[in-house]
Design a binder for these strands. Sequence first.
DNA 1: CACAAGTATTCCTTGTCAGGAATATTCCTG
DNA 2: CAGGAATATTCCTGACAAGGAATACTTGTG
Lengths: 126, 126
Amino acid sequence: MKATTFSALAEPNRLHIVELLARQPLTIGELAARLQLRQPQVSKHVRILSEAGIVEVEAVANRRICTLRAEPFEELDGWLRTYRQLWEDRFDRLGDYLQQLQHDASDPSPTDKADTSTHPDQEESP
Amino acid sequence: MKATTFSALAEPNRLHIVELLARQPLTIGELAARLQLRQPQVSKHVRILSEAGIVEVEAVANRRICTLRAEPFEELDGWLRTYRQLWEDRFDRLGDYLQQLQHDASDPSPTDKADTSTHPDQEESP
DNA sequence: CACAAGTATTCCTTGTCAGGAATATTCCTG
DNA sequence: CAGGAATATTCCTGACAAGGAATACTTGTG
């Protein structure tokens, strides 16, 4: 998962923009009116959202029509899938870990043991 | 949706922490080792994640065991539901809007018309 | 009770970002 | 082609966030 996606959504006005665009496409000016922001700031925010791949800007004469792109949301959805067991499975991960901690008091290889073996590997510096 | 959740995940190291904790709970020190960061910075990052409600910190003697909390992910999942039609329905929102733009050239109430009527209202300053 | 491991906190510095204001650009219309 | 609408860009300033370094706190142990 790219942090830039979260970064783009971390700004309240930008998050607001995204939620407005979820209802319908809007131009820069329309966004500015709804957000009570001045046009230049909206342009900047939209640019950032656009560079993050969240918003697509279509030029129609004078105006720029902003629409949401699906990809980042699909990616987010896929990312979330990894965490879905957190509230679905609900097994006692902390309990397991506490057990493991006690073991580790005498065990020389303390760190990477309790892998639940359901996650794709991304970490681990061997 | 709270921007603070995105804000907490916007920092690459913090996102990394979350992805590590998705596999198993870890202490501050273990996180520091995996992230190649110094302990104080990890403590700070974890504090921010904790204040955002993403991570729960349990004190066990000397150490602090960090685990993921489910709520923010559930909330994110619910939030995404609103956007799921973006890639599932795939109806031509931009085309609709272009139509509407032409209409609006003569129509005096240009802004709020094309409500798809499937979204909870949060915006609109009447 | 001194010591060490694990962690928290503070201070400092640097870089980044958001908004304001002014200005430039593009495009339509008469 | 002049003028106005919609938007982009630039410059500036103030706030804030992140890492480094040093230090304080806490807990188990000898």
